[in-house]
Design a protein around this nucleic acid. Structure first.
Lengths: 198, 198
DNA sequence: ATACCTCTTGAACAATTGTTCAAATATACA
DNA sequence: TGTATATTTGAACAATTGTTCAAGAGGTAT
């Protein structure tokens, strides 16, 4: 008999992700986590390892959600540039809603642990780079479709998208005024290349 | 006899600020602080109160440094728009150098403690708003000098500057590549209004 | 049932946390 | 110098931290 656990592993990770996202690695104790996932310490440690290992799992879970969201848009929309623009809008919309915290969990992790070259910060940086690579891939498609100037540096532009996104979401944490946030989003989108009219 | 303390109060606050900035509120213990400022617990508590009070002092110290930097630029440069542009360049340059951490301490504080409506996060938000108000004041000057369209919403534009700055500094924490960061800075500056040629 | 394996439980551990306080030391003024 | 006042010291506190582990519970196969 193997793995006859009562709990739903994915649900546990999802709950832990929410808590870690909202309060950070140092901001919540293992007892907080135990309560949030409804597991006693023994079960939690036996199934998920220590705090750092569990947080790592949470980071991966969070990042994969972002990837899924991007892929979903890719299937709905034809133009890669439209995908990116819609992804930005969507990201800020979730900032306005009751997300556990409005800032990207990967960015928060780097901010909290990045100074000490923490392995979790390293992972978060890698996952952010993966996201930027997806942006670059979409931009490359747009370029080949003739929607971007041939000389465009898609990697640099992808980083610029990511920088705008990080700025918007961080700012949303400071100023909850929806009208102002929408203005900023429009300004940011105005910078970025749009699908050509036809 | 009053205040015959041996230590330099300002130096203690400066050292504490460095540590809190680099490692966050939850990331460093009072023992870490005691070591960094070279004070035994009794002296530290007698002179600065508890951890939260000391962190508050650090936030104020940090924010005033930013204000001073902006005012220094204001005395060097005539055009208010040039002041803002130079402030952006300077902020990113200090990100490339060995700042304790590359992200604004106010932003880091809101990220770490903001979800729980922590009083320190509230203060950090207020200080960020003060900075945005300074930006708006400079933009208002530029508008009156005819360097901005009369219809410009200076408060919204000030927020946009701040959002760009937050994005740049956060991104600098992820990607240390100086060439890429410089490209992003140029792109961000290209968006923002510049002094008219004459 | 009985034996066996797996998972769960919660008490317990050592280390660390923020903070206090009585004793020791230093300083100022007579 | 002697006394009073201000400051520094470091041991100590209770609470919380991350983590472990022996004992119990639950299910499956013989």
């Amino acid at each position: 008999m193997v793995n006859s656990a009562k709990f739903d592993r994915q649900q546990v990770i999802a709950n832990a992700t929410h808590l870690f996202w909202a309060r950070g690695f140092n901001g919540c104790s293992m007892r907080d986590v135990q309560q949030a996932v409804n597991l006693r310490p023994g079960s939690l440690y036996a199934s998920f390892g220590d705090k750092e290992t569990l947080y790592r799992e949470a980071l991966l879970h969070y990042a994969s959600q972002g990837m899924v969201a991007l892929q979903a848009l890719e299937q709905q929309l034809v133009c890669p540039l439209a995908v990116l623009r819609q992804f930005m809008r969507q990201a800020l919309a979730s900032s306005l809603a009751d997300a556990p915290d409005k800032v990207c969990m990967l960015v928060k992790t780097v901010h909290e642990l990045g100074g000490a070259q923490h392995p979790l910060a390293k992972l978060a940086r890698e996952l952010l780079q993966q996201m930027a690579n997806q942006f670059a891939r979409l931009l490359q498609q747009a370029k080949q479709a003739g929607n971007l100037a041939p000389a465009t540096d898609v990697n640099a532009l992808a980083s610029f998208y990511q920088m705008q996104l990080i700025g918007l979401k961080s700012f949303a944490q400071l100023q909850q005024n929806p009208a102002l946030l929408d203005t900023l989003l429009q300004q940011a989108l105005a910078i970025l290349p749009a699908e050509k009219a036809h």
